[in-house]
Each structure stands twice: as C-alpha cells, then as structure tokens.
C-alpha cells in the first residue's frame, strides 16, 4: 500500500466524501425518524485527515472529557473498515433512556439501574452508528460487518485501546458530525474513523461514486 498517496488525500476527494456524507446523513436522519422514531439532527460533517499518532490528542481535544462523558465505540469491517465513536455529554445517560421509554419491557427484575443506562446507551449508539456507517457504505456500494458496541469511560487508557489496532505511522480519515435530539436538550458528536487500509479502497469508491454521475 502506498502510504504517501494515502496521506495526500486530495481536496477534491475530501469534497466528494463530504458530499457523500451529506447525502448519507440526510438519509440516515430521515430513516431514523421514519423507521425507529428517533428524531435526530446531524450537522454538516467535518472531514479531517490525521496521522494516527495524533489521534489520541485529537480525541482528547475534541471530546473535552470531564471524566463523565459516555462514549459508545463500535468497530466495523469490510472494504470500508474503522470505528464509530459516539460521544454523549456527561449526565445524559438517564435522559437518553427516556427515548427508549420501554425499559419496563426488560422483563427481568434485578437488573441494576446502571446496567439499564448502559444498555440504553449501547442500543442508541448501535443504531446511530449503524445508520450513519450503513448509509455511507450503501452509497459506496459496499457493506460492512459490525462488532458489538461497547461503552468506554473517558480515560486515556481507553483512547489507547481505541487506537491500538492502528499503526501510528499511518493515517486516518476522521468524519465528525454533531447530533442533536429534537425536542430534547441532548447533543453530542459522532466520529467515524477510517483506518489506513481502507483509504485506497475509499478513494477508488469515491471516484466510482462520482463516475456514476458523469
């Protein structure tokens, strides 16, 4: 794989990816509302190409964690490969549960409140990450397989865990969007980290996507 070429992800290519994400997130928003009654707004995504070595600093700066943010992380793989990272501000766990106001359906007693809260985060995280990554994949004519999501604490050891499967010499494309739940005062952001291996594939897929319009 040509690393130089990967780092020089061109402005044009960034623009195409930006456009794809605009379309994908628009579709995701519409379908989330229609299909699963989750009303969420996603901001225009911001795309950055960063060296993996800088990723922990980028995450630390972006997340500005006070130790109480709830972070849901989910890895996905296929031609398009990376991680989805959903960051909720501190104290939003309980409000989020109100979305899934069917917790009584968890038909088992003795499940601790903290476990329910974590379960709610995992479920919302799984659906939001799945919707966004899924729609991007769809536009790029591919599909991905997901690992189970997990809740991370905002500790630096956890960031390290996040990037341990990335080579620090390599590059990641970070797509960031801010999401807001309508009529609820909850917002946070979603990061999609693409790892190095899929950058060449991504570039090709972007050109094919444009090709279909030419």
């Amino acid at each position: 794989m040509n690393q130089e070429a990967s780092i020089n992800f061109s402005e044009d290519e960034k623009d195409i990816l930006q456009e794809i994400m605009n379309i994908a997130f628009g579709n995701a928003t519409a379908d989330l509302a229609e299909v699963v009654d989750i009303y969420v707004m996603l901001s225009v995504p911001n795309i950055q190409v960063i060296g993996i070595g800088e990723l922990p600093f980028y995450l630390k700066d972006t997340i500005k964690d006070d130790g109480e943010s709830s972070i849901v992380e989910q890895k996905f793989w296929g031609s398009f490969k990376g991680s989805g990272l959903l960051v909720f501000p501190s104290g939003s766990g309980k409000d989020l549960l109100a979305f899934l106001d069917d917790r009584a359906d968890y038909h088992h007693e003795g499940t601790a409140a903290a476990t329910l809260e974590k379960g709610g985060l995992l479920e919302i995280g799984n659906i939001l990450i799945g919707a966004c990554v899924g729609k991007v994949s769809e536009l790029l004519s591919t599909f991905v397989t997901y690992s189970p999501p997990q809740v991370l604490q905002g500790k630096s050891s956890d960031y390290n865990y996040l990037i341990e499967h990335f080579d620090p010499m390599q590059t990641a494309i970070v797509m960031k969007t801010i999401f807001t739940f309508k009529e609820k005062d909850i917002n946070g952001f979603l990061l999609i980290l693409t790892n190095h291996e899929s950058i060449d594939w991504l570039r090709k897929a972007l050109h094919e996507f444009m090709g279909s319009y030419e």
Binding site: D31, G119, L122, G130, A131, G134
Partner: peptide, 13 residues
C-alpha cells in the same frame, strides 16, 4: 433499514 447489526446481550436481556 440500515443493514446494521443488533446485539441483545445477556447482561441486559
């Protein structure tokens, strides 16, 4: 709709 996966963990369910 999204082609994602859903996980029903033993801990919760």
């Amino acid at each position: 709709t999204f082609g994602n996966f859903a996980f029903f963990s033993q801990k919760l369910h």
